[in-house]
């Protein structure tokens, strides 16, 4: 060898860096759950440092609940308070589903950054960054639910199904939202920019949420639209959430929501993971 490394005798980093290198023994590799939870912790840290990212989760539920209650309440049900009884489970679903797009936006933003190269060069369970992000998203969905419910109760919404019924409705909405999130993780991997995801998301989410029974029952709709609304899984989710909050959800309804969630996840999760691994 012609070149011996210059002895790092004097300069500041030498000794302490050498000491740090000497103590850097490798611990046993962590499991996939522990790794996913670490990524969920990262999502929470990011919320703490960049709380603005919660603005959609906070503003949208409040705006939608207030707006629809007072815009349509008098016309549709005689009074805002009467309409709220019907509407609230629907705005809950709408608020959470609209928040799913950020799963894709965040993933896409992350992928463009150097730190993801580092994650991908680590000996960890490959989909852990995505799984961890979804756990973080579940917390955002719960926050949206809590806001809608608190506002609803304040405005006079009374769930006859009690706390248990409400919790069941929230659980179903979050499960469905997590399944739908995989659609956006896939878009997050496929599309070039966060803006592109937002554009595509609007095209997907507006029909999905508006062509449903969130705002009105489909009875007065033309036949073709009635068919569309009935086929929309969001309609079944809203019907079940309403029933749960009213204390009348059936096992069949619950199973249907879980099945729809499972089908969506079963299609989009493997596609996402495969595309992510191939990147």
């Amino acid at each position: 060898m012609t070149l011996t490394p210059t002895a790092p005798a004097g300069p500041a980093p030498g000794a302490s860096v050498r000491a740090a290198l000497a103590t850097g023994a490798r611990p046993p590799a962590p499991g996939s759950l522990s790794t996913s939870l670490t990524f969920a912790w990262r999502a929470l840290l990011k919320i703490r440092h960049v709380p603005e990212q919660l603005s959609d989760v906070i503003a949208v539920p409040i705006i939608f609940t207030l707006m629809f209650t007072y815009l349509f309440g008098g016309a549709l049900d005689g009074s805002p308070r009467a309409y709220l009884q019907f509407l609230l489970p629907g705005t809950l679903v709408m608020a959470v589903l609209l928040a799913t797009v950020y799963t894709g936006v965040n993933l896409n933003t992350d992928l463009g950054k150097g730190v993801f190269d580092r994650f991908r060069a680590l000996p960890i369970w490959r989909p852990a960054p995505i799984a961890g992000a979804l756990i973080g998203d579940a917390l955002r969905y719960l926050l949206a639910c809590a806001l809608v419910l608190a506002l609803g109760l304040l405005l006079g919404f009374r769930p006859h199904g009690g706390a248990l019924g409400v919790l069941l409705a929230v659980a179903l909405v979050v499960v469905f939202a997590l399944a739908l999130s995989w659609v956006f993780t896939l878009l997050g991997l496929l599309l070039r920019s966060p803006n592109a995801i937002m554009s595509v998301a609007m095209v997907v989410l507006f029909p999905l949420t508006l062509a449903s029974n969130i705002l009105v029952e489909p009875d007065t709709m033309p036949g073709w639209l009635h068919t569309v609304v009935d086929a929309n899984p969001v309609t079944h989710l809203v019907t079940t959430a309403r029933a749960a909050m009213a204390g009348s959800a059936t096992a069949g309804q619950i199973t249907a929501v879980l099945l729809a969630s499972a089908v969506i996840a079963a299609v989009f999760a493997p596609l996402t993971v495969r595309l992510y691994n191939a990147k």
Binding site: R26, P27, P28, A29, P30, S34, T35, T38, W41, R42, L45, K46, H49, V50, K113, G114, V115, D117, R118, F119, L122, I124
Partner: peptide, 24 residues
Amino acid sequence: GQFASVDEDLTGAENLVLLGRLLG
């Protein structure tokens, strides 16, 4: 990597703790 492979939103300490956790 060529562009800083650390998370810009997190603190320096959080970045290192995050990696420590991911490494076990």
